[in-house]
Write a protein that binds this DNA or RNA. Sequence first.
DNA 1: CTGAAAGCGCTTACAG
DNA 2: CTGAAAGCGCTTACAG
Lengths: 333, 333
Amino acid sequence: MVRARPRISDVARLAGVSTATVSRALSNPSMVTAETRATVAAAVKATGYRLNLTARNLRHSRTGGVLALVPNLANPFFSQILSGIAGVLGPAGYNLLVADTRTSDPETLLAYAEPSRADGLIVLDGSLAAESLARVPLVEACEWIPGLQAPRVKIDNRAAAKLAIDHLVGLGHRRIGHVTGPTQNVLSIARLAGTHEALAEHGLTLPDSAIYHGDFGLQSGQEAARQWLVQDPNTRPSALFLASDEMACGLIGELHRQGLQVPRDLSVVGFDDIELIAHIAPPLTTIRQPRADLGRIAAESLLRLLSGEAAPEGDHILPVELVLRDSTAPWAD
Amino acid sequence: MVRARPRISDVARLAGVSTATVSRALSNPSMVTAETRATVAAAVKATGYRLNLTARNLRHSRTGGVLALVPNLANPFFSQILSGIAGVLGPAGYNLLVADTRTSDPETLLAYAEPSRADGLIVLDGSLAAESLARVPLVEACEWIPGLQAPRVKIDNRAAAKLAIDHLVGLGHRRIGHVTGPTQNVLSIARLAGTHEALAEHGLTLPDSAIYHGDFGLQSGQEAARQWLVQDPNTRPSALFLASDEMACGLIGELHRQGLQVPRDLSVVGFDDIELIAHIAPPLTTIRQPRADLGRIAAESLLRLLSGEAAPEGDHILPVELVLRDSTAPWAD
DNA sequence: CTGAAAGCGCTTACAG
DNA sequence: CTGAAAGCGCTTACAG
């Protein structure tokens, strides 16, 4: 037979006090005498009482949860970020809810950004509509929604592109190409713009023929390789900066299959520094994003927002770093 | 000025009906007349009313959430699984909560498996204490907790090991080694046992010197490579079956750095079929686990449990598959 | 079909 | 320091 969960009134009855006193003894011990505290503690133990969080949340007009809106949960890129978020939210007493924005229909999405579902949002998808989110406190992380007023935690994507380009130019490359992320994506746009700018500083240009349109995924890196392979070896890029490591892997894999070598035939710089790419052949030179830190700081910013502190001024920009490995080599025409 | 959220009573007043009628019109439309329905709908629109889920949940004595207990959120292995879970839970109206069991202290962990926090649990960590979970409906996925009575969704790890070993034996290998996962892990144990069994069927054995103790991570694969490298080339394994693709990557990377080639010098079979390893050099032969399906089916089983259906009999075993790529080659001593 | 009222299980301002 | 009571915002058995 299933006994119903004990409620606070069960504890009160057993302890011979009011429910108010039990509540105080539990959540504000200093408000009751040591003796009361002990009596209540004994009654709690005897009944096996555990606080009903839903009831407390209703009373406090809060949900106790924070929702992370992830563009694609299946993408390993987000694991570290979620881990960083969870590491902050858990100890702070918040539940971490996650939802995949790509696989949810707009209706569902609207229902997600709902004050009764989560106390706050961590938005990792820059393609969402600002209006649908406006009802809940939120911070943006990694990506951002143009026009949306909210604290942002991100990297300087243009500066990152400059690191990559400067490195390649320093190695003697003059024909440098770029493999983009999804066309509309804010990161893609920033990284492409940064590539243009950095090349310009060196008196170089990025012709359309050296721009390969990808989507951050493996397949599109492979596709970029195929496009590059059919271009004139004398005029095609001698080096490629890719907007993600995954695409770089796809590209290198395809090049290998076609009998070409990286970096001998093509220098490659990736983006993200996902764990595996230090161990592939060749180990990939890339731009490191502090993914766990991005998650951690986004969560901390949101907690500050929820506790009523003033929203931080300006964006929170985290440093990136060029990690030199073996996928780039000097070049002389 | 901040206007409080409208409540159901605001809608009722405007519509000139009782709160009960509003509630019915919203969650059980067929219980009210079409006219009432229209009046209520208009009042909802006019007030901008949205249901407070916490209140409804309290009333229904449920939380509306399902908690996934993940051993390590930072591990990309779980992204696809979470994605599979989210794909089922979202449409069913449940929130997906996630928590990292490794970074949570036992106290916190106990508080997680709390009926007032989640209606059900999807347990992905086989190292948790059965007692701490017993209070909430749950299913186990991938890993399992010995002694815990709960529906399990998993693969046949022994059969998977047999696929790998049969393949290697078929190529002529006689000295076959195994790189394990963490010693206490149920998957490690099953895969090691499966390796023993499969070798025995071919009249072969797995000497201690051919067992390398890893932890599923990249570094430990690298470490296994170092151990193998210092063993006598004439007696050390000519082929290795590893309990994870990550370890296989770490191992191959280290072998390359030492000037050895896979599969020329060593045949390698991994486990999991994570996306990237199809694109490394050499593309890895491995055992494919249907990760998204594992998550999906675990979520479906839990929903069935929560809806009061009888728990399914026995474990739900999903098929694995040997994916042949280029990291294994014939061998003749 | 609809309404009045009780109740889900807490917390807290108020009074003593 | 403690208690009685109201209330967080819903839903539903009961009555009409």
